[in-house]
Design a binder for these strands. Structure first.
Lengths: 223, 223
DNA sequence: CGCCGTAATATGGTATGCCTAATAACAAGT
DNA sequence: ACTTGTTATTAGGCATACCATATTACGGCG
């Protein structure tokens, strides 16, 4: 085993499991058996258990006594709660970005916006969606508030799947693109209030979308 | 060993360590040696390591490769960042509480307020301070947003020490009590905007206090 | 006398094994 | 045939033993 590892094995395992949740290899509700999963990853149970602890703290898996940990399967209500908090975190991030971001950082955010415009007609939903997420993260990151960045990231990972489904099903990306256009504009104008307001509105829109989607697909758990 | 434990040993260890941080038995910067601490607690290294993982995710300890984990020692800037996020979390919690709290819950919050009034002249700083914390937590809890409650709790535990120091040194509790009076009033009026505004202002005040205190005691790390 | 290299020790990271408890399956009795 | 009890298997929780690495101290060489 190459000991190039400059970080703990548990962290890398957590990364792998997180990635598997994003790709859908690990779906909500799936159990994560210790021995099985550890063997599949070629590691022992100890670091796997530690990885589970990390993911549990992030709200991505849920554990119960004498039960295999399972991939978190948030209810519609949970998702709305998460999104509401996320909306406020991003609004704060936007405010801070207006005050503290360097011109280079804002330029970088515009770059992401432009890539979204370019790919907004692509059939490749994943690429577009990832850029969308990166756009939002970049705004919060530009605010420079470390705890906020980290918390926002965690909420994002818990919301990833729901927002991805929302992004896929939403027939028109028109509203999304218009919102983003407003966001980058108010950000470049360094108008903190406007940026916060539009980010909040954008996330509230996401709540509405997800509600609509999950209510319609409520009893069709995809395989 | 009595197997009355309905929760994991790691969780209980994390609770113990958290408590020791609050009482000051574990001060910021202190290393937590695995073998030593495990033996002191009468447990093996495995659950202790898992407890460290939990506390690390909460931001209460920091780990580095091949180094003993150390109790987090946030800089003044870190504390300001944390408090800024906390202010917004509480503002959101207050808004939600206005919309969703039951009359009984608001009555319970008033009870806490009244206990603060009663004990506001006591020399017992800890009792007063704990009631203060409980007051804020109860407001957020009344909002009913689970992720928000949990995140707010985590930020609180990271801020506990700083806010406690602020509470001790602050000569007059006048402003605090006036703020709290306003908070409970707007909460009972279910005025979401006013509640959010005053909570935000109250926390901003805390930022100012802590800044003043830490700047004056910057180079006197208490033993 | 000082600096560098090597060795020893201490500490965190990982693997493995045992223990306990929960669940499921099978058998026996009603 | 159904229900209940017992047993076996599975799986998670904890402890321990081993490994790799980093740091420090000591000794030798310049």
């Amino acid at each position: 085993m190459p000991s190039l590892s400059r970080q703990r094995l548990a962290d890398r395992i957590a990364d792998i499991l997180r990635a598997q949740m994003l790709t859908g290899a690990l779906k909500p509700g799936y159990p994560i058996h210790e021995r099985e999963t550890a063997e599949a990853l070629g590691v022992s149970r100890t670091p796997l258990r530690e990885a589970i602890l990390i993911l549990e703290a992030e709200g991505l898996v849920e554990t119960a006594p004498a039960r295999s940990p399972i991939v978190a399967d948030p209810s519609l209500e949970d998702l709305c709660d998460l999104l509401l908090v996320q909306a406020n975190l991003e609004a704060l991030g936007g405010e801070l970005a207006c005050a503290k971001a360097s011109d280079a950082e804002i330029a970088g955010i515009r770059k992401l916006y432009e890539r979204m415009v370019e790919t907004s007609e692509d059939p490749d939903t994943v690429g577009f969606f990832k850029t969308d997420m990166a756009f939002h993260c970049a705004i919060v990151a530009a605010g420079g508030n470390q705890p906020l960045i980290k918390t926002h990231l965690q909420y994002n990972s818990r919301l990833w799947r729901a927002r991805y489904m929302s992004s896929r099903s939403r027939t028109g990306r028109g509203q999304t693109m218009r919102d983003h256009s407003e966001i980058i504009r108010s950000l470049e104008a360094r108008d903190a209030e406007a940026t916060a307001a539009v980010l909040r509105r954008h996330l509230f829109q996401a709540i509405a979308n997800i509600t609509r989607i999950l209510e319609s697909e409520e009893q069709s758990p995809l395989p």
